[in-house]
Amino acid sequence: MASLAHQFALAQPLISADVVSASEFQAYSSRFAVQAVPKTVVNGRKDIVGGMPEPLFVAEVLRAAGIDPDNPT
């Protein structure tokens, strides 16, 4: 998920991708209710726990951006 998120950011200037060491920044991580890793948070809201294949991950990112991934325009 970490490298995929970075690649999304390199491909799309509108994306910023952070990889956060949850054990080093426990207070920061607790703000996002991180209890298991990897955990991915998109726009501070959408939570994804665990890994996810690239097509599903990009669909989640689109949803978080308010775009329907199943309805290409």
Binding site: L14, S16, A17, D18, V34, N43, V61, A65, I67
Partner: peptide, 14 residues
């Protein structure tokens, strides 16, 4: 990704 029009912030906690 090319369909995006607004900023998105992805945080991966590891």
């Amino acid at each position: 990704l090319s369909r995006m029009t607004d900023p998105v912030h992805i945080q991966v906690f590891v």
